[in-house]
Design a protein around this nucleic acid. Structure first.
Length: 267
DNA sequence: ATGGCGGATCTTATCCGA
């Protein structure tokens, strides 16, 4: 029996809870990790997801901004969230999923966007983003996460040339600058993580998970970036049979999220 | 044309995202 995990920056879970339920009904992931829920824990639409068959929730929310939540059909245990950069913002939650006699740890991240100017000396938000990545690196290095681990979420970084619509034009744009992509590569390499989407969809193919709201026609202009990721430790990655990005979801409903779901089959 | 849009909240204005 396979285990399916999905990640989706939902850009307000209260506004789009019905769309999430449609997604769950149609794609039936076992675990769904949401980012930018934009609500406090007590405002999380728990009943809606419970009614949809997702009874197990790990929520780390805050007022108005950011916030992450992991919902699951399978029991979640050892739920915890970590603070980064000595800030009180809600950007991480982890939970253990029990499955078929095994257990995997799922880390759900919302990495800071980083503002406009790609210079930490003059842009505090970019400094925060770089600091956040450094802390991620240190934490995963020290925790000896050798097996049974998955990191997912909105990393706000498009690492490869074909993860953006124009490598050349985005080299100086926050989300694709060398300092960011190199830090992400360092985290990936030092933890022996496998980028599950790129395991299944070769790096030669252009691939995006986010399209700006500001484009007149996101589909035709197609100026996307692959900001949302699913990484796994080698033991899980070896057995992963499929991963996909639901491009069509960018056009779902009258008010879609600007991110689409990313799904991977584990085991 | 990478921000022209679209969230939440401090709501008819402002802050934030990427």
């Amino acid at each position: 029996m396979p285990l399916t995990i999905a990640t989706w920056n939902i850009n307000s879970v209260r506004l789009r809870a019905p769309m999430v339920v449609e997604f769950l009904d149609r794609f039936k992931p076992d675990v769904l990790c949401l980012q930018e829920i934009k609500c406090m824990n007590e405002q999380f639409p728990a009943q809606v997801f419970l009614d949809a068959g997702y009874a197990h929730h790990a929520v780390n929310g805050q007022k108005a901004y950011h916030g992450v939540a992991t919902i699951s059909r399978l029991p979640l245990s050892n739920i915890s969230s970590k603070q980064f950069c000595k800030k009180l913002d809600a950007r991480h939650i982890s939970a253990q999923v029990e499955f078929d006699g095994k257990s995997i740890n799922v880390h759900n991240f919302y990495v800071p966007a980083g503002g406009d100017v790609a210079d930490p000396a003059i842009n505090e938000k970019f400094e925060h983003k770089l600091g956040f990545l450094d802390e991620m690196h240190n934490w995963f290095t020290h925790k000896s996460f050798a097996a049974g681990q998955v990191i997912v979420g909105d990393f706000n970084i498009a690492p490869h040339e074909n993860d953006v619509w124009s490598h050349k034009q985005l080299l100086k744009v926050v989300s694709h600058t060398p300092i960011e992509t190199e830090k992400l590569d360092t985290i990936l390499a030092s933890g022996n993580w496998v980028d599950l989407v790129r395991k299944h969809i070769p790096v030669e193919n252009k691939l995006y998970s986010w399209w700006s709201y500001r484009a007149k026609n996101w589909d035709i202009s197609d100026k996307g970036r692959r900001l949302d990721h699913i990484w796994a430790t080698p033991d899980i990655a070896t057995n992963s049979t499929d991963a996909q990005i639901l491009r069509d979801a960018r056009g779902w409903g009258e008010k879609p999220s600007d991110h689409v779901p990313v799904i991977a089959q584990l085991f």
